[in-house]
Write a protein that binds this DNA or RNA. Structure first.
Lengths: 160, 160
DNA sequence: CTGCTTGACTTGACTCATTCCAGATAGTGC
DNA sequence: GCACTATCTGGAATGAGTCAAGTCAAGCAG
């Protein structure tokens, strides 16, 4: 939470170097933020990171997210109609629950054993390399609220 | 293809009236276009419809698509990183193959019988009402092209 | 420790899909 | 045929994300 280096930071540094990337304050801060707040939007990450580092350009946020996603350190989720979200849980192919109301996103391990849907019956000649599953519904708070009351971009994300 | 009313038009008119919607030229033209060109983008639909009717505002396109989607006559697909696409095949919950290169979309019936993934193992309190499955890969033409050569928005869509 | 090289960050303009607004037009029920 | 109002037109605006040019600093060689 403070700006002090942590054990987690050291781990991130190692991953960054392993990927041939430089270790910079914005990168450490973004990865640290995502460790605490998975499924954050680029915008929410920007807010969180600026709280720690003072000022970071939006462009830097997008750049870091793009580079780390390309390096396989992050996974990008883009629910239809909502801005992209990022998470550090990579490698397994777990899926996601997305709230139609507020866009809140949660992990969902696949129901039917391992990768149940990775083989469509008719692939039309496509070379399929990934099956993405999104479960749409309403999150607990939107359910109790009846109406999706907190449609604000990501207040609750920032403190989730 | 011509502007002449067809049997299909009559069917669409019925559905529109059943939904309490007015029957207008843009609506018939859009539904007719989608019958021949499923998975078209709003933009491609606009081009196609203007070829038949002369001039239709972008706004009308989006309005018709929105209204018909709300009425359950159309289904909207929004692959991450690509503009939304629309199709008339509704009611069944089939899934989609999306090309990472050109965005070309095709239908895929789910491999594991009916709605295999509709029950995530851990729903985190979400009230899930739909499971959306997208198979990502490369379409035949992008495969043979090696590189996704035809990245143009939707030329090939318009003549698919 | 110092200076250099090149990858990373800043700033600001821009694209693209989509939506909002106000006013004109044209389906539908009477 | 007429009135009512849903629907369409045109133009401007929004929000997420990208591009480009220039400045800065991480990390290596000396």
């Amino acid at each position: 939470m403070t700006g002090a280096p942590t054990v987690a930071d050291a781990e991130v540094s190692r991953s960054l170097r392993a990927a041939g990337l430089r270790v910079t304050a914005p990168r450490l801060a973004i990865m640290a933020w995502l460790a605490e707040h998975p499924h954050s939007t680029a915008d929410a990450i920007g807010v969180g990171v600026r709280e720690r580092l003072g000022s970071v350009s939006t462009q830097a946020i997008y750049d870091v997210l793009g580079v780390c996603t390309a390096a396989g350190m992050l996974r990008r989720i883009e629910p239809a109609g909502h801005p992209a979200r990022f998470e550090r849980r990579v490698g397994d192919n777990h899926h996601h629950l997305v709230c139609r109301g507020c866009g809140h996103t949660d992990d969902a391990d696949c129901a039917v054993g391992t990768r149940p849907c990775l083989t469509p019956s008719d692939h039309h000649g496509f070379a399929v390399d990934e099956a993405e599953v999104v479960f749409w519904g309403l999150c607990p708070s939107c359910l109790t609220a009846g109406e999706p009351a907190h449609r604000t971009t990501n207040h609750e994300e920032a403190r989730q």
